[in-house]
Simulated scan of single mutants.
Amino acid sequence: MTKRKKPQDSTDEREPNMRIPMLISALLLSACAKTADDIGTANVSSSTYDALSCSQMKSRSRMINEDLAKAEDSQNGGAQFENLIMLGALSGVSNALSDTDEDIATLRGEQIAIRQAFKERGCVA
């Protein structure tokens, strides 16, 4: 007569080993990099543009919009890359990558401020 194996219950000694991968996964997912949408806006005063003419502000506005688009693309691409690195458990490399959080926040603030200055001066878009 063959002896049947007893089914393993949930208190098996292997259970703690299952917790480690789950804990690592939770830590990695919580450490994901920010995308551009997660970044706020810096406060920039519209008086920053007091010395500029309407045409100069229009030109500066285009430059800000272009720079912001590039910074957001860079941030989003960097975030994807960092998340892949984090999922690959190479978090040391992730910390060496540069974020553009401050640049994006400042450019967004400048965007709002220059629009406000445009309105205050009665400039035509």
Rank of each mutant, 00 (worst) to 15 (best):
K5F: 15
A125E: 10
T35N: 08
G78H: 00
K119S: 11
R115Y: 07
S53I: 14
L90E: 09
R108Y: 01
L29P: 01
I112T: 10
L52A: 07
A71L: 00
M1V: 05
D37M: 03
M1K: 03
D37S: 13
C123L: 05
M22G: 09
G122M: 06
L87E: 04
E110F: 04
T100D: 04
T106Q: 05
E82R: 11
A89M: 14
A71T: 09
K5R: 15
D73C: 00
I85D: 00
D73T: 13
L28I: 11
I114M: 01
L29M: 10
Q116E: 13
P16G: 10
S59W: 04
A89Q: 08
N83Q: 07
D38I: 11
M57F: 12
L29Q: 12
E66K: 09
P16Q: 03
R115V: 01
P16I: 10
T100W: 00
N95E: 15
G122V: 05
R14C: 08
S45M: 14
D9P: 06
A96I: 12
N83E: 06
K5H: 14
I64D: 00
L29F: 01
K58Q: 12
S55N: 08
M57Q: 01
S30C: 08
V93D: 07
R121M: 02
A69T: 13
A51W: 06
L97F: 08
T35L: 01
M18Y: 14
R19T: 15
Q75A: 02
M86G: 08
S53K: 03
N65L: 02
L97N: 10
M1E: 12
R4L: 10
M57W: 09
L23T: 14
N43Q: 15
N95L: 13
D67Q: 11
Q56L: 06
E110I: 11
T41C: 03
